[in-house]
Write a protein that binds this DNA or RNA. Structure first.
Length: 591
RNA sequence: GGCCCCGUGGUGUAGCCUGGUCUAACACGCAGCCCUGUCAAGGCUGAGAUCGGCGGUUCAAAUCCGCUCGGGGUCGCCA
């Protein structure tokens, strides 16, 4: 049997009236009027109404047996609907198909949740019956949007002269960054592969290979805890270019996004995307991924209070800290101030100073501690209108900035300043090359160890490594980090110095990255690139809150796949073949 | 691992704060009957939950308390 004569349900139009068509699809809804029976038949293309008239006795009898989500084949003529019975909600609403014959290809049990509407359903249940969930409008739309975005990316980069090249998934573990998923080698017992966290080293080697402009839509694996925007396996758009500087990379990436937003979403973004340095972002927004959908900005207040009598400010400033403030453009009640204070405390601040602005001056429990001059200067800087609230944090800069960043975000939500459907892209540039690990206190790579320092900062590498800025940049959309990139080091000597800064000895560097250092001695072009999370891009484009809504078969927070119940207990035979032994028997599966 | 939220028929909710009137309500779905222009079809009838589990308090627990299991959010973690 061939189904080549299949007519897509959603594409039947009045110009086909009188034509006999073959429809194949699912029973989306049924309306049994006793005599006439109407069925909404659904396939991926859409929905059409099928009419079962008692005149066609056989078909009508079968029509009476149909149940939701059964799969059927209907044959019959396309008919114009009688005047007044057209359905303007449906693309096919001017016509219907009269079933002259109908075959039930698969009788469906009642589904565990309604497939013909997008009402909320427990997510674990949706994931257990994901194939039903994917039939629903929301997921079907999201997956098709994802496809169109991926295609737009490929079309755009192909036009720009990029070549899509696949790189290995089973790779050598490089114990940097996230925890690896390990795959034991059967042929070399005791040896392991890691699943690639990203194609980073391979794409750089492709540049050494002269590939010039590479990209890949590639699955990446990181064994870390899950979040609304994080899955253990996720998809990245990865690209790399030779003979370029920062501006070349940023230009290609932002034109790529402009292309997606225009072609796929029909919602053009303004380019060039604005840029902000990392230092400025930390100062003005308290984060390295600012949400610019709202305008609240943090202000430096330290100079104003440089000689303040107020003990809390005094102590912070004397200890080399800062006082920074945020104007909240609305009257905020005591309860809300308490909530904001909790937010600040959650980020390590000891508290939140606040002043209400009134027509004739400041009102606050702490006003009495400040001089007239200080209060005037405060108004000068904050530009508060009567009714506004000004809050401030005094602490070390590493505490004050993120605390106010969190308060800014909470205040924006509290005041309803965030409009849905707005897309505010921003580049964050000049990231530091290194950062100090909160855990171990050691210096680690802020981006990755192949990131080039800015030439003017190379002199600081040995003495003040934390001051060295990198040729690294992040792309941020609505406060979500989409991705990051950098200009890479292509000089083996400079690479060695950066390894040294990271406390990686020459021997260790040679052992772990020798292949890269060697490659760089055979003619490595200057190169740089970028990578961004496709799941996150689609999530934001679709207006979804989690990446699970744009992934066909995602993992839950325990990194389980509830439909197949992966992961499953290890079986003895494959373990033996791999030369592995379990220290502990697997826990019994939880029901 | 810490913190926060959620768990009531197949699905989604109400009831919980303030214990008894809960013999657990409503909508959808499901089953049966009626119905020839519906499109979230309509009407009538019916089945279906011991309120995630265990323990406690009480004359009495869906409701209060403790523990626990499951799900989600978040911090840590994510070069």
């Amino acid at each position: 049997m061939s189904l080549t004569e299949r007519t897509p349900a959603g594409e039947v139009r009045s110009d086909q009236v009188g034509r006999e068509v073959d429809l194949y699809g699912w029973v989306h809804r049924r309306r049994d009027l006793g005599g006439l029976i109407f069925i909404d038949l659904r396939d991926r293309s859409g929905i059409i109404q099928v009419k079962f008239d008692p005149v066609n006795a056989q078909a009508h009898a079968t029509g009476g047996e149909l149940r939701l989500e059964s799969v059927i084949h209907v044959r019959g003529p396309v008919q114009r609907r009688p005047p007044g019975t057209e359905n303007k909600e449906l693309a096919t609403g001017a016509v219907e198909v009269e079933a002259r014959s109908v075959t039930i290809l698969n009788r469906a049990q009642p589904p565990p949740f309604a497939v013909n509407e997008d009402n909320p359903v427990d997510e674990q249940l949706r994931l257990r019956y994901r194939y039903l969930d994917l039939r629903r409008g929301r997921m079907a739309r999201n997956l098709q949007l994802r496809h169109r975005i991926a295609k737009a990316i490929r079309d755009f980069l192909d036009d720009e002269g990029f070549v899509e090249i696949e790189t290995p998934v089973l790779i050598r573990s490089t114990p940097e960054g996230a925890r690896d998923y390990l795959v034991p080698s059967r042929l070399k017992p005791g040896y392991v592969y890691a699943l690639a966290q990203s194609p980073q080293l391979y794409k750089q080697l492709l540049m050494v290979a002269g590939m010039d402009r590479y990209f890949q839509i590639v699955r990446c694996y990181r064994d870390e805890d899950l979040r609304a925007d994080r899955q253990p396996e996720f998809t990245q758009l990865d690209l790399e270019m030779s003979f370029v500087g920062e501006d070349d990379v940023l230009d290609v990436v932002e034109r790529c996004f402009a292309y997606i937003w225009e072609k796929v979403l029909g919602n053009p973004i303004s380019t060039p995307i604005r840029r902000i340095t990392h230092a400025e972002s930390m100062l003005r927004y308290g984060v390295d991924k600012p949400d610019l959908r709202y305008r609240l900005e943090i202000q430096e207040l330290s100079p104003i209070f440089a000689r303040s009598e107020f003990k809390i400010f005094r102590q912070a400033l004397d200890a080399g800290g800062v006082v920074r403030g945020l104007r909240i453009p609305r009257t905020v009640g005591t309860k809300e101030i308490e909530a904001l204070t909790e937010v600040a405390r959650g980020e390590g601040a000891k508290g939140l100073a606040f002043w209400h602005r009134e027509a004739d001056g400041w009102r606050s429990p702490i006003t009495k501690f400040f001089s007239e001059r200080e209060l005037t200067d405060l108004q000068q800087t904050m530009n508060a209108e009567p009714g506004d609230l000004v809050v401030a944090v005094a602490d070390r800069v590493e505490v004050a900035a993120p605390a106010l960043g969190a308060v800014r975000k909470a205040a924006a939500r509290m005041l309803g300043l965030i409009n849905a459907g707005i897309f505010e892209f921003v580049w964050v540039t000049e990231f530091p090359l290194f950062e100090r690990s909160k855990e171990t206190g050691e210096i680690t790579a802020a981006h990755h160890p192949f990131t080039s320092p800015r030439p003017e900062d190379i002199g600081l590498l040995d003495d003040q490594p934390l001051k060295v800025r990198a040729r690294a940049y992040d792309l941020v959309l609505n406060g979500t980090e989409l991705g990051s990139g950098s200009i890479r080091i292509h000089d083996p000597e400079l690479q060695q110095r950066v390894f040294q800064g990271l406390g990686i000895s020459r021997e260790e560097a040679e052992r772990r990255f020798g292949f890269l250092l060697t490659a760089f001695r055979y003619g490595a072009p200057p190169h740089g690139g970028f990578a961004y999370g496709l799941d996150r891009v689609v999530m934001l484009a679709a207006g979804e809150e989690t990446v699970r809504e744009v992934i066909a078969f995602p993992k839950n927070q325990q990194a389980e796949e509830p439909m197949t119940d992966a992961p499953a207990p290890a079986e003895p035979k494959p373990l033996r073949e791999l030369g592995l032994q379990l220290l502990r028997p697997p826990a019994p599966p939880t029901p």
